[in-house]
Design a protein around this nucleic acid. Structure first.
Lengths: 114, 114
DNA sequence: TTTAATACATAAGAATATTATGTATAAATT
DNA sequence: AATTTATACATAATATTCTTATGTATTAAA
């Protein structure tokens, strides 16, 4: 687990990128997928997840689709066209930022210790 | 310039790392050095800088040394032994986090586009 | 002489997370 | 059969960390 400060500011990017990769996803599924892909290193809490999803919907990057699994509700999130371009921007910006940070902190190129 | 969310959580690491690299530094000097090293991509604002420096002092990672240049005050920050081990932890954690993020977001190894 | 650069500091406000709490269904364990 | 865990949503109180604004003051440059 990483100290919480690090994750700050990357949550929207993580969520949008997951929606780009696969199909529609629902909130709980997103938390589990991130947990799995990062070997439990990043665990998105519900208090962070849902407000972020609502914000993404409000700003037009995703639309929702509510489905009932038996009696239980499930809310799928789907990337809009606007969302697709937002992902590209966000991921590129983060990649650039990480490159800058590696230089600034003198972190060796990761090819050496993958 | 990066969107402000990204820098969040990395400021302490940046400052501590600069103090590790060189000698003692003062606040304004730190902002200028970061600005220069990142080609203006990261500009630390004063409202973020000074409270962070005070926090680092409070938690024992740095000590200060006040010097007068003519009539103008200058406050130098020096890494303590505790601070030296904090830097190592922080930088390692950030390096690990960035590796995880590259994997999670499918960002190619930067050796390909340095 | 006025503006820009240097150099510190704090306060109000915004953004984004954590922790806690709440509701409810479905599956697994005791 | 009863209890716990997992699934699935949501919001409120709080904490952290930043931006933006404001304040003070000296020194250098236009």
């Amino acid at each position: 687990m990483y100290s919480s400060e690090l994750i700050k500011g990357t949550l929207k990017t993580i969520i949008l990128n997951l929606l780009k990769e696969g199909d529609k996803m629902y909130g709980y599924e997103i938390t589990q997928k991130v947990k799995e892909l990062t070997s439990d290193k990043i665990q998105i809490t519900e208090g962070a997840l849902y407000p972020t999803l609502h914000a993404l919907e409000k700003q037009g990057d995703v639309i929702t689709e509510t489905v009932y699994i038996g009696k239980r509700v499930r809310k799928y999130y789907i990337l809009t066209d606007q969302g697709k371009s937002t992902v590209l921007e966000r991921v590129n910006e983060l990649a650039d930022f990480m490159k800058t940070m590696r230089f600034l902190l003198g972190i060796d190129n990761p090819i050496l210790n993958v």
